[in-house]
Amino acid sequence: MTAPVLQVSDLDVHYGLRRRRRQALQGVSLDVSAGETVGLIGETGSGKSTLARAVLGLVPSSGGRIVIDGEDVSGYRERQWRRLRRRGVVQYVFQDPLRSLDPDLTIEDSLVEPLLIQGVSRREAVARARTFLDRVHLSADLLPKVPGEISGGQRQRVAVARALVTEPRLIVLDEPVSALDSANRVQVLEILKELRGSGVALVFISHDLGSVAGIADRIAVLYQGELVEVGAAAAVINEPDHPYTRLLVSSAPTLRAASATRAEREELRALLSV
């Protein structure tokens, strides 16, 4: 394993001011190495999206350290963030492919945007966009179309291609396949699997353990703003330690019925609700 692309240590994030101040993340530490896929699991409000947004500098942290590609970004101001982002080191893929592409821009315009921001010439940017469109198994015929003219699965693959064009070291994917149907889900997951060979680190956010189990090397479980479990995927799934992880594993629907009995689940729920 090489040096981590992302190092988060003891991160705190708060929302709101004064009396309405709420802690969204508490003492979260997580390293992601190059070429590694980490599944970040948590329920609604567990802070998983907050963690992703903090890593991208979209929400300020109130304590702890974030190091991206060797650069400590903890105290960064807007201008420094913009400089870092322009290098295209970190990219993000949103859950909803319907809203993550500008409906008025053609696919080509959306794809080349990150490159144009970097100052790459239009001609070269388009050439690169074509390469990466090919990487996500889409044909160049889509380039002149607008998002409304292509399917949801294609849109999500365009969003992945847009995240790839700057050749980032780290991509954060927020529920990238939740809004897709089966066939497209498999396609996008295949593409992500292929990416791992190229050395890019992936953080795959999901509320469903089942949807990242097949792709993640390691799994991190967030519960109520704290990281309650981190470990190799097989270990977390087979020998979950924290009651919430155990409940997650036992709740995830599988084809052979749930892995725990109803009584076990009830017991875990009771344990957590205390």
Binding site: S182, V186, A213, G214, N238, V249, T254, L255, S259
Partner: peptide, 13 residues
């Protein structure tokens, strides 16, 4: 079914 077997929790449990 393949999707669950390849990418789901299935192969672990």
């Amino acid at each position: 079914i393949d999707e669950h077997e390849q990418y789901g929790l299935h192969r672990f449990v």
